[in-house]
């Protein structure tokens, strides 16, 4: 398929628009499908794809930040502490990205996608927020409060070292694959640290941009970030996710979520197959 720049940029913008729209509508994020879209559909080398995807992740995370702050759910101390783990992880991931073969990276990408599709197909159980805290969490001043129906409710924090370790892993995946790895971040805060659902989701979004910026610097120096390729992707995903967030309101479209999970699953299998057969 030989496309001219005008066709290539136009199709790419349309694809990114759809990804951003579906990502916002389903709450799965559009960033995770950018790399498969670029490599499988447009035949772009996975290194350029990772560069464009990282930039897109930063754009959507920063664009949504002010809305999350206004709601008053995110915990900046937890975010900042865990960012030490995610930025170190992201630098390690970016380093690994320079020495591992593209085929191997594609296979890991596919496996992470399968896991994300699996996670998103299951409803997240809201557990009762913890009222006690570990001594380490208290010393780090992590426990805080968040609004529930207009009233501030206190919550406790647990297992800081386990959360920190999982965040390091989230950082490595983010740096290696050019994704936000929001799924792993939420897992670390939900399950390990026992944070309330809304606090972990918004704090995760707070951290995604910073984590992505840590590896984006390395990739910029390595020449992975191409302006012509990144332009339609960033603009498309931003426009798509803003529109998606407006349409969304308060409903959660279940069918769409299932459809998008299936799309992610198919792309994942394709990534693994292409990686295993050496086409990526």
């Amino acid at each position: 398929m030989h496309l001219t720049i005008i066709q290539f940029t136009g199709f790419l913008f349309a694809g990114a628009l759809a990804a951003g729209f579906l990502g916002a509508l389903t709450g799965l994020g559009g960033g995770v499908v950018i790399v498969p879209l670029l490599t499988i559909v447009f035949g772009v080398d996975i290194r350029y794809a990772i560069g464009a995807s990282l930039i897109t992740v930063i754009a959507t995370s920063s664009g949504a930040a002010s809305a999350y702050v206004r709601e008053g759910y995110s915990n900046i101390r937890i975010g900042m502490l865990l960012e030490i783990a995610t930025t170190i992880g992201a630098l390690v991931g970016a380093y690994l990205g320079g020495i591992l073969s593209p085929s191997f990276i594609a296979i890991i990408f596919g496996l992470v996608l399968v896991y994300s599709a699996y996670l998103s197909s299951r409803p997240r159980a809201e557990h009762a927020p913890a009222h006690t805290s570990d001594s380490l969490a208290l010393r780090l001043k992590l426990p805080s409060s968040y609004p529930v129906k207009g009233e501030m409710v206190d919550y406790g924090v647990h297992n800081v070292p386990a959360g920190f370790g999982l965040m390091g892993l989230a950082g490595v995946l983010s740096g290696l694959l050019g994704i936000g790895s929001g799924a792993v971040k939420v897992l670390a805060m939900d399950h390990a640290m026992k944070l309330p659902f809304k606090v972990s989701t918004t704090t995760s979004n707070f951290m995604i941009g910073v984590t992505a910026a840590a590896s984006a610097g390395v990739y910029l120096h390595r020449g992975y970030i191409d302006p012509l390729l990144a332009m339609p992707v960033v603009l498309g995903v931003l426009a798509g996710s803003l529109t998606g967030a407006k349409v969304l309101g308060r409903s959660s479209p279940k069918l769409l979520r299932i459809v998008f999970s299936i799309v992610i699953f198919v792309l994942a299998i394709e990534m693994i197959y292409n990686g295993a057969t050496g086409r990526i």
Partner: peptide
């Protein structure tokens, strides 16, 4: 100039920190 825009995006989370 487009690449400057990408650079500004990378700088955005750094500014926040």
């Amino acid at each position: 100039i487009v690449q400057t825009g990408m650079l500004l995006l990378v700088l955005t989370p750094i500014l926040r920190v």
